[in-house]
């Protein structure tokens, strides 16, 4: 049997792009209007964490960690419903405008705070492959570099034996089977098993936690700030970010000379276009 594992899942709350609210047709987001949801990629990471916990010894533990404004506590409750043992959010105004490097730094401080509190380092850290709002896929590997963990990105499936993670991962034009010593950081691809439905017991448990006293709640959802995890504020937020957005554009109509065909029967519209698009002829199959 495998040893007991301490497993951490790193998750993020992102604007909800499933509904139309706040999503402009040009792909931009009105953050004020948009709802919030668990980053869809992180749902796979959560399932990976739950599966890994079953692979470990009977005293294995699963922790969910996020960084963000207080409403992000919602997604921590979600992980509790699914079976996480405890969760933690790093929330601090001084984190605003963090780029990936500053985010990785702050999350590492949070993780190290938790390692100390929980009495030992993580064996496994799972992240979603990327977020839907930043889409960089950088924070995971930046954390493994800082913690000197091994790393498997684009992981589609895995098992654990002894001190090794055996993983199937996506590479350019194919897949690869690798073994990585623990502790390891793993980013989970969205081809991994979908997040299972939460259990009734999990849902009931979260209801109870939400009704419990502040101290009782803090056992399951701990809220910390930069001071608590001894993070250097000069390395967080805008200060700690080596990059800055110096300029943004609205890319408007480029040519604006699209020839429009409308208000007629489809047959007419199509023949108009075929008449205009002379080039098409060259490629029609005989």
């Amino acid at each position: 049997m495998n040893k007991d594992l301490d497993i951490y899942v790193l998750i993020k709350q992102v604007p909800d792009t499933r509904s139309k609210a706040g999503v402009n047709p040009d792909g931009t987001i009105d953050r004020a209007k948009a709802g919030k949801m668990l980053n869809p990629f992180d749902a796979f990471a959560l399932q990976a964490g739950l599966n890994a916990k079953k692979m470990g010894g009977p005293n294995s533990r699963l922790f969910a960690v996020t960084m963000g404004p207080p409403p992000a506590i919602d997604i921590l409750y979600q992980t509790l419903e699914h079976g996480a043992d405890a969760t933690c959010i790093l929330s601090d105004r001084r984190l605003a405008a963090s780029d990936t490097l500053a985010t990785a730094y702050a999350l590492c401080r949070t993780l190290e705070y938790l390692f100390k509190k929980n009495g030992r380092k993580a064996d496994l850290i799972f992240c979603g492959l990327q977020t839907t709002d930043g889409d960089t896929a950088q924070v995971g590997p930046e954390i493994s570099e800082r913690l000197d963990f091994t790393q498997v990105t684009y992981c589609e499936d895995f098992s654990i034996s002894d001190n090794l993670l055996h993983a199937k991962k996506i590479i350019e034009g194919g897949t690869q089977l690798v073994s990585a010593e623990l502790p390891a950081l793993v980013t989970i691809a969205n081809s991994y098993t979908k997040l299972k439905f939460k259990s009734l017991r999990g849902a009931q448990f979260v209801q109870d936690v939400k009704r419990a006293s502040k101290e009782e709640q803090a056992k399951y959802v701990e809220i910390i700030d930069l001071d608590k995890c001894e993070a250097d504020e000069m390395r967080c937020g805008l200060n700690g970010s080596p990059t800055i957005v110096s300029k943004t554009w609205k890319i408007g109509v480029v040519g604006g000379n699209c020839k429009m065909h409308q208000g007629k029967a489809a047959s007419e519209l199509v023949s108009e276009v075929f008449k205009d698009a002379v080039m098409l002829k060259e490629f029609v199959k005989i």
């Binding site: 699209c258 020839k259 065909h261 409308q262 489809a266 519209l269 199509v270």
Partner: peptide, 27 residues
């Protein structure tokens, strides 16, 4: 439509079959 060259305002389920039909005629 702000950057296409030719725009057809219509339902794909009407327009595409019509395209196929006319292309086959061309053919």
């Amino acid at each position: 439509f702000s950057f296409a060259d030719q725009g057809i305002v219509g339902d794909v389920y009407h327009v595409i079959p019509e395209m196929i039909k006319q292309l086959q005629e061309k053919n």
